[in-house]
């Protein structure tokens, strides 16, 4: 409120400082989590319940997204292909883009909205209604009771959901390719096999694992540190979804650079 002059340096500085403090506090939280892992009797059953909940709840939307993404990729690839390129190349492109990029990234972005928003809102509400303090006041660790189960459940589930997404995406891709590319089943399979390497599947899984961490850890942190009533919870929820989504895109680029080059 002191002055209204717009000095870009100030904003950059403030942004850098606040990011640094977030990174510091997230690292501290991660350390606490690693310590809390010993209390598996507390977090394991909760994680299982949550995983069940999220898994079934997200399966439909994840598969729906993947189905559309697969079909559209096929149609667009067909549109771009000319007769001079062998048609099985197209199959390779479709399958690879789904497994390497669309399956993991789209699933993660959808789940950032679904799981991330939910976690941030849950923990934020618990924070502002003093439920987290209440847990601590009983000598119980809020990290072991609330955060580890959520992070474990999400991080294990995202790769599983990505597998479902990729299978459905490739299936619908094949279905659409039949008409858009006029490709035979044998050609499609040949193309897919020709370009596919086992490492691709590993890469997709590693990626999904990190996306899972981003989707759960960031919202848990945001909710955990929420302030001041309903507005604070709202803010925590939106910033959780935004931050998790940005982090997914950033990780996507980073992991591609690190693992595929």
């Amino acid at each position: 409120m002191s002055s209204l002059t717009i000095d870009p340096r100030r904003y950059v500085g403030r942004f850098a400082l606040s990011s640094a403090s977030h990174v510091g506090r997230v690292s501290y939280l991660v350390l606490e989590m690693l310590r809390g892992l010993r209390e598996w009797k507390i977090w394991a059953p909760r994680a299982l319940g949550l995983a069940n909940d999220i898994g079934y709840g997200s399966l439909f939307i994840v598969m729906l997204t993947a189905a559309f993404a697969g079909a559209v990729t096929s149609v667009q690839t067909g549109y771009q292909f000319t007769a001079t390129i062998p048609v099985y190349f197209a199959a390779g492109v479709i399958v690879e883009s789904i497994i390497l990029e669309l399956g993991p990234v789209l699933t993660a972005l959808i789940l950032a909205g679904r799981i991330g928003a939910r976690y941030a809102a849950e923990l934020g509400t618990m924070r502002v209604t003093e439920q987290i303090d209440a847990l601590e006041s009983l000598g119980r660790s809020s990290v072991s009771h609330l955060i580890i189960p959520r992070v474990v459940a999400g991080t294990l589930l995202v790769p599983v959901l990505v597998v479902f997404a990729s299978v459905v995406g490739v299936g619908s891709g094949w279905f659409a390719a039949k008409s858009s590319l006029d490709i035979s089943y044998a050609d499609f399979v040949f193309g897919a096999r020709y370009f596919f390497r086992p490492w691709d599947a590993w890469y997709a899984m590693i990626k999904s694992f990190f996306f899972g961490l981003a989707i759960t850890l960031v919202p848990c942190y945001m909710g955990f540190t929420a302030k001041q009533g309903a507005e604070g919870v709202g803010k925590a929820t939106t910033s959780a979804v935004v931050a998790a989504s940005v982090l997914i895109l950033f990780l996507d680029a980073l992991l591609a650079k690190l693992l595929l080059e």
Binding site: T129, E130, Q131, D133, A134, E136, S137, L138, G139
Partner: peptide, 13 residues
Amino acid sequence: RSRIGYVFQNGAL
């Protein structure tokens, strides 16, 4: 803390 019971003003259930 486990030896100190705390009753929150607004319940905090």
